[in-house]
Write a protein that binds this DNA or RNA. Structure first.
Lengths: 333, 333
DNA sequence: TTAAAAAGTGCAAACGTTTACAACTATTCT
DNA sequence: AGAATAGTTGTAAACGTTTGCACTTTTTAA
């Protein structure tokens, strides 16, 4: 098939050793005499021998490949996570098979099964929702899995994320201290673990603790135009401070406000709960919970390397520090 | 290794056929009697048999995997290209191994070699620069390659892109017709094929054709902050209309102008030569050459599937239509 | 100097499929 | 009915590595 198809066998013949020895030098096994190693290396270089990773995978049962399951590549939240993953993967010489699952044709469990069939050594799962079939698919295998930037409801799987509850509470407090009393929460899918177990309870608790009434939770507000269209509702409900999970959604609200002549932050304060490039590039720039997305990805991948090597991983539920980045969409005292 | 490790052999035994027959039904070969096919399928379902893709890859020499080489996942230009690629790949049941090469540790030719070692059936290359070693690496193999959103200098490789020269000329013309005479071009790497062979010549020709003098080409302006810092230079040079290759760079210039109290588009018109989400989300929204990024990716991947199947591909240098999207960063007549 | 231990090497059997090819069975045609 | 043909199935050799085991050589220790 390949124009140049040098196998380990060719190298063995030329170097007058067995293929086992060639394999050993290729894999850096120390049990090879210096001069035979040199001899083999010389042949390898001369013939431009490159091991066939598929054959290696079959024989060794390790493919040095990890699977990524991600909802949407063009969502910078996931792109930035992926970058952290990718850099660490490179460091440890793993390749990445990426599977995006927003597409109707691809269900979570199919994505997982596809990766397992490819014999990936591990999987990083980034979707904010982990359906039962996906859990089942993972459980049917020994392949380690790490969740990045999300959590599962029972903490069955290792995960790397932030303390969403604490972060949201802190953000709400910032609005509250700015004198805002009619606080709202804008989320996408209301059924995700993070929303159900963290954001919504944190919001409700905060509202209750401060006697602010029921408040307003707006669900299924997922993109720029959803955010744009939400403004009239916010106006109607008299909201003066809002936390928005996705930053492009927040930008939608922001732009809608600008276009309607409504002042941000004077009349409406906006905080986004996940800051990507976009949050800092719009004007007024968005105050945000800055999640360390790159680091979350990197730490998740690092943890996965340990799991793949059966190394000890003392803590599998990791929460990384976040910070509240005050910008122009909230009042600067 | 796997908890559950059912092989084709187990299925064969249970169904009382040979592994060859099982293989045939798995691969949809028609030369199997209906009732044996049913019998085998029943066993496959009962045992939850899933073929080992690595073994398939070794035996068949096809991995149904394609490699993507991309500079930066968090650059939406590439993310949107990738999405088009991904969707078509899913349709044709290919997996995607993604390799990002911005990292210092990973050179283009190493990335390519890595993918070839994994026996990918094809490669899509998206970097705007194609070093000589990368060309060599590609030439050493029969694995088909398609360039997406970029071109090589000698049109040696199949590619899918737009007519950059025409698009830029049209954009310059828009500025010119708005009465702007001091036009500038802002690019990133000045050595890319697209810049050297298309954008720069188009700019120079336009300036010459309209007797606008030498003009100003600003190179190595690559991100938001580069753009932000460039504004003073633009001011100094009296530029009143500018084409910027990357949209976040354009946004940098835009934000710098806003912060400096300079009016856009009244005092400075800005057009970006590649529009992602970001161009439409900032205010004033950026007038842009809208490249059909998703489609470029999709068409590139579709072409690759044909090349991988040794099908006839009549035209391998494809240019897709673009449009000039007039927004708020240029005057609306 | 010699026995024991360590280091270096080769043999051959995996790994889990695909796929010529051969062989057998059922069908069609005359 | 018999021959030719088409359809169905099995056998076994790939595919290109890794790796346990046995064997040989070298080193170490007494």
């Amino acid at each position: 098939m390949r124009k140049q198809d040098i196998t380990i066998y060719d190298v063995a013949r030329e170097a007058k050793v067995s293929m086992a020895t060639v394999s050993r030098v290729v894999n850096g096994n120390t049990n090879v005499r210096k001069d035979t190693r040199d001899r083999v290396m010389k042949v390898i270089n001369r013939l431009h021998y490159q091991p066939n990773a598929v054959a290696q995978g079959l024989a060794s049962k390790r493919t040095t490949t990890v699977g990524l399951i991600v909802p949407d590549l063009t969502n910078l939240y996931f792109a930035e996570l992926s970058k952290g993953i990718d850099d660490i993967a490179l460091l440890y010489k793993y390749n990445i098979i990426i599977t995006s699952i927003e597409n109707r044709l691809m269900r979570e469990d199919q994505a997982i099964q596809g990766l397992l069939n490819k014999q990936v050594d591990g999987v990083i799962y980034m979707s904010d929702t982990l359906p039962e079939e996906a859990v089942e698919a993972f459980k049917r295998t020994d392949t380690p899995v790490v969740l990045a930037g999300t959590k599962d409801s029972h903490s069955e799987f290792p995960s790397v994320a932030i303390d969403y509850k604490k972060a949201d509470t802190e953000a709400l407090n910032l609005l509250y201290n700015d004198g805002r009393k009619n606080l709202a929460l804008v989320i996408g899918n209301p059924d995700t673990v993070v929303n159900v177990q963290n954001r919504i309870p944190a919001y409700k608790k905060f509202m209750a603790d401060h006697n602010l009434g029921e408040g307003h939770i707006y669900s299924n507000v997922k993109d720029h135009s959803d955010g744009y269209n939400l403004l009239s509702q916010l106006d109607h409900d008299g909201v003066d401070g809002v936390i928005v999970t996705r930053d492009v959604t927040a930008v939608g609200i922001l732009n809608s406000a600008i276009d309607a002549g409504k002042k941000v932050p004077e009349e409406l304060e906006i905080i986004t709960a996940s800051a990507t490039q976009i949050a800092s590039v719009v004007r007024p720039a968005l105050t945000a919970i800055r999640q360390p997305l790159y680091d979350i990805g990197a730490v998740a991948m690092r943890m996965l390397t340990k799991l793949m090597n059966n190394e000890e991983v003392p803590e599998t539920q990791i929460e990384l520090p976040y910070e509240i980045l005050k910008k122009q969409s909230t009042t600067n005292e």
